[in-house]
Amino acid sequence: RTAFSSEQLARLKREFNENRYLTERRRQQLSSELGLNEAQIKIWFQNKRA
């Protein structure tokens, strides 16, 4: 289980509010910017949509 920092969570929530689905390219960008792997971001979005 991933423990996200408050900064990472704030960024993910802001991104989710703008778009509930990420393109592969956007997921790669977020992964690089947040220091998370793409799978972690993908799962976070899946869980948030559920």
Rank of each mutant, 00 (worst) to 15 (best):
R1C: 15
R1W: 10
T2C: 15
T2N: 12
T2L: 14
T2H: 14
A3M: 11
A3E: 14
A3K: 13
F4I: 10
F4A: 03
S5T: 14
S5R: 04
S5C: 04
S5F: 03
S6G: 08
S6Y: 11
E7C: 08
Q8F: 03
Q8H: 05
Q8L: 04
Q8C: 06
L9K: 05
A10L: 10
A10G: 05
A10S: 08
R11E: 05
R11N: 04
R11T: 07
L12F: 01
L12H: 00
K13D: 15
K13M: 15
K13A: 13
K13N: 15
R14D: 09
R14P: 00
R14G: 05
E15M: 04
E15P: 00
F16N: 01
F16R: 02
F16T: 01
N17I: 09
N17L: 09
E18S: 07
E18I: 10
E18G: 05
E18H: 09
E18P: 01
N19M: 05
L22H: 01
L22I: 08
L22F: 03
L22N: 02
T23W: 04
T23H: 04
T23N: 09
T23R: 03
E24T: 13
R25S: 13
R25K: 13
R25P: 07
R26A: 07
R26Y: 06
R27G: 10
R27M: 15
R27D: 01
R27K: 10
Q28P: 01
Q29S: 07
Q29H: 07
L30A: 00
L30P: 00
S31I: 05
S31Y: 04
S31R: 03
S32G: 07
S32Q: 14
E33H: 03
E33Y: 03
L34P: 00
G35N: 08
G35F: 04
L36V: 10
L36H: 01
L36C: 06
N37W: 04
N37A: 13
E38T: 06
E38S: 07
E38A: 08
A39Y: 13
Q40I: 15
Q40R: 06
I41L: 07
I41Q: 01
I41R: 00
K42L: 14
K42V: 15
K42R: 12
I43C: 12
I43F: 10
W44Q: 00
W44Y: 08
F45D: 01
F45N: 00
F45R: 00
Q46D: 14
Q46I: 11
N47R: 13
N47Y: 13
K48R: 14
K48V: 07
R49N: 12
R49P: 03
R49I: 12
A50C: 11
A50L: 10
